[in-house]
Simulated scan of single mutants.
Amino acid sequence: MNGPLQNLAISLGVMQLARKVPFDDPQVLDYVRIGYIATQTITLAVYYYVSQKVKSKNDQTIIKYVEASNPMSQEPGALVTTTVRDYDLSETSKLIKSTYTSLAMMVFLHLYMKYTQPLFVQAIMGLKSLYEAKPVKIHVFGQPAEGDLKRPFKGVAGMFGPASDPQTDKAAIEEAEKRIGAKKEE
């Protein structure tokens, strides 16, 4: 089962489980709030730990790839030249921003709209996404950067189709370098 379908199945299962939780009981609600806050705190702490680990390793191996182009535009993807350190830091930064966005959304849903079930669901899904984060797999769990974890990371497949992955083949990189050279001459 691909990632989005698996997330949907887990979300639906956790929502069914959340229906059985008595959120009217203030004590249960407090436990759910504490669980959600603990999950988000653990997630952010792990991401900051990954950032520190990446900085301490300071891997200056150069990575070249062509970003996936926007499907709505005719523009070809841009050439990216970076280091393993900078790439991992940018990926970890994306994960941190995603966590903060989710946190802001949950604060709105819970405090303003008075929804409680999403706290329960997001606490579980937050742990799942932490476990699946590629920088966490490499720097915390010690998995080698091979296959699915090879940099640059492949895009996550969407619900309605495959992801557009960055191109790492020599021909695509040379084509992008030629485009850049042609633009500089103009």
Rank of each mutant, 00 (worst) to 15 (best):
Y87I: 00
G77F: 11
Q52D: 06
Y48M: 05
E67M: 11
V54S: 04
T43M: 10
K57T: 06
L44R: 01
I42L: 15
S69L: 02
Q74F: 10
T81C: 07
Y47A: 08
S93D: 13
P71A: 10
G35S: 05
V80T: 14
G77V: 09
K53V: 14
G77N: 12
R33T: 11
V54W: 00
Y31A: 09
N70Y: 11
S73E: 04
V54G: 07
S69D: 10
T43W: 03
S69K: 13
V28R: 08
V80R: 01
S56H: 14
N70L: 11
T83S: 13
P76G: 00
K57E: 08
A68Q: 07
S93Y: 13
T81M: 05
S69Y: 07
D30F: 11
V54M: 02
V46E: 05
Y65E: 04
G77E: 05
V46C: 05
N58K: 14
V80L: 04
L89M: 01
I63C: 03
R85Q: 15
K64S: 14
L95C: 06
D86P: 08
R33K: 15
T83E: 02
I37T: 10
D59I: 02
L29H: 15
I63M: 10
S93N: 13
V32I: 15
T39S: 13
N58Q: 10
E67H: 12
Y87N: 01
K53T: 15
Y87P: 07
I37N: 07
L44K: 04
I34Y: 11
K55S: 12
A68Y: 03
Y48E: 07
L95D: 09
Y31L: 08
L29M: 12
Q60A: 12
D86H: 05
K53R: 15
L79V: 10
V84A: 02
D88E: 09
P76D: 12
I62E: 14
V80M: 11
V66N: 00
Y36F: 09
Q74V: 07
T43K: 09
Y47Q: 07
R33P: 00
V66H: 00
T39E: 07
K94W: 05
T61D: 13
L44H: 03
N70V: 04
G35L: 08
A78F: 02
T41I: 01
L44E: 02
A45E: 02
N70P: 11
Y65W: 04
N70F: 08
Q74C: 05
T39L: 01
Y49E: 08
R33L: 14
T61I: 03
P76H: 06
V84N: 01
